[in-house]
């Protein structure tokens, strides 16, 4: 019986380390495939090169790095206030009945596939931008709007649980000193939940930088520096997604090299979010 229990424990342990093995394998294979191009071009030139022309063997991803950052920044500007607002609403204002309608809605928003978001961007947001600004419509702005929607669930869920973890004493003490409900929220509750809210925003940022399909469908994908928020743009993920279908040889390795840069960005964001305590007292 003892041996049997030990065997089971071993099987459970092996299952538990498969996730970490997966991360190691992913890291190794992406780096192994992409590194030759980075070595050939030089890391600095690869990161700061303005020109991406695979047919001439010129690989510079600076426009895509800027593209990813600018689309993400736009998504945060639009999504963070609404996300935090909605989280505060759910934790402080909403009656259970109203929260009971909104919460499943947010779960659904998180469950909608990225192609559906891309489709909505393609048939509604891009044409609207085209009409209003009289341009091609595929733009940084279109990408930022769609990504802002896509990161809402992450920001709302993490922020709401951070706000809910603020001890009731804080709020009661503030109210009993004569503060209004809003003053208590603004000066006591939100500051106490600050680190959890920041973690939520960072996780949302990771999701925005990593999103591929929805972005490809609506940002135009020209590998040049965007001049304004109405210009078309290509992101790091878009660079991979657009060309993976036909690239081969060194060109394909250059896409893996783009993947390395994306991977490093995401890992830094995730590690930062993980280091931040998400609930009060954690």
């Amino acid at each position: 019986m003892k041996a049997y229990e030990r065997a089971i424990q071993l099987m459970l342990f092996i299952s538990a380390i498969i996730a970490i093995l997966g991360v190691i394998l992913i890291t190794y294979f992406i780096i192994n495939e992409g590194y030759p191009v980075i070595r050939k071009v030089g890391l600095w030139d690869f990161l700061t090169g303005q020109k991406w022309a695979p047919t001439q063997e010129i690989y510079g991803i600076y426009p895509m790095i800027v593209g990813s950052l600018i689309v993400t920044a736009g998504a945060l500007i639009l999504g963070v206030p609404i996300g935090i607002g909605c989280a505060v609403f759910l934790a402080e204002l909403a009656k259970p009945k109203i929260a009971g309608i909104i919460k499943p809605g947010i779960e659904l928003l998180a469950g909608i596939p990225s192609v559906i978001y891309g489709l909505y961007g393609l048939v509604v947001i891009v044409p609207t931008i085209r009409k209003v600004f009289n341009n091609q419509g595929f733009s940084v702005l279109a990408g930022s709007i769609v990504l802002a929607i896509m990161i809402l669930p992450t920001i709302i869920n993490v922020s709401e649980s951070a706000i809910r973890s603020v001890p009731l004493d804080y709020k009661e003490a503030s109210l009993s000193l004569g503060s209004s409900h809003w003053q208590s929220i603004k000066n006591v509750i939100v500051p106490a939940a600050r680190s959890g809210i920041i973690a939520g925003v960072i996780l949302g940022m990771g999701r925005a930088i990593g999103e591929t399909m929805a972005v490809i469908m609506i940002v135009g994908n020209s590998p040049i520096m965007p001049k304004s928020i109405l210009s078309p743009v290509r992101t790091l993920t878009g660079n991979i997604g657009i060309e993976m279908g036909y690239a081969s040889g060194e060109h394909q390795q250059a896409l893996f090299a783009t993947g390395i840069v994306l991977f490093v960005f995401i890992m830094l964001l995730n590690i930062t979010a993980n280091l931040i305590p998400k609930k009060v007292g954690e």
Partner: peptide, 29 residues
């Protein structure tokens, strides 16, 4: 801690990276 870190990291990896990995590891390698 390491196992949890692995699970958290795996959850944060974007799908395009999974696509690249799946291609080079399962499809090709």
């Amino acid at each position: 801690k390491i196992i949890r870190f692995g699970t958290e990291s795996l959850a944060g990896i974007p799908s395009i990276i999974f696509g690249l990995f799946g291609y080079v590891f399962f499809v090709v390698f």
